[in-house]
């Protein structure tokens, strides 16, 4: 049994790869799993709350699309890890950050010569 997290991932993959807006029924039809439309709607509204998908309300049925591409979200995520000090508080990401490239290169030479 797939968890909600797995379903969210599948739905996002569908929206990212398809590149078009889909209705809940279309999402259900394209998913491998056999799901109720209500489940798909739950997943879509969770994703909407996370501002991962946008809902087009002018049409019936409502159509859903990804707010940004996979790459754009990855960049957003990495900016927080590699970005300026002020927005790095959320993650502990100094494993590499504290060491300069020059020192890392020196370390590599040192380890290689052993």
């Amino acid at each position: 049994m797939a968890t909600l997290g797995d379903l969210e991932r599948s739905v996002m993959t569908l929206l990212w790869d398809g590149g078009e807006s889909l209705s809940a029924n279309e999402v259900r039809d394209r998913l491998d799993e056999d799901l109720a439309v209500t489940t798909v709607l739950t997943v879509l509204s969770r994703l909407e709350k996370k501002s991962m998908v946008a809902r087009e309300r002018s049409t019936r049925p409502h159509r859903y699309s990804a707010t940004a591409s996979r790459e754009e979200h990855t960049v957003e995520m990495l900016n927080e890890v590699l970005g300026t000090a002020s927005d790095r508080e959320a993650v502990l990401a100094r494993f590499i950050g504290g060491i300069s490239d020059a020192e890392a290169a020196a370390l590599r030479r040192m380890l290689d010569s052993e």
């Binding site: 590499i96 060491i99 290169a105 370390l107």
Partner: peptide, 12 residues
């Protein structure tokens, strides 16, 4: 640990 630090630098 040292190797992983050396290799995970951006220019590795």
């Amino acid at each position: 640990l040292l190797r992983s630090l050396a290799l995970s630098s951006s220019e590795a």
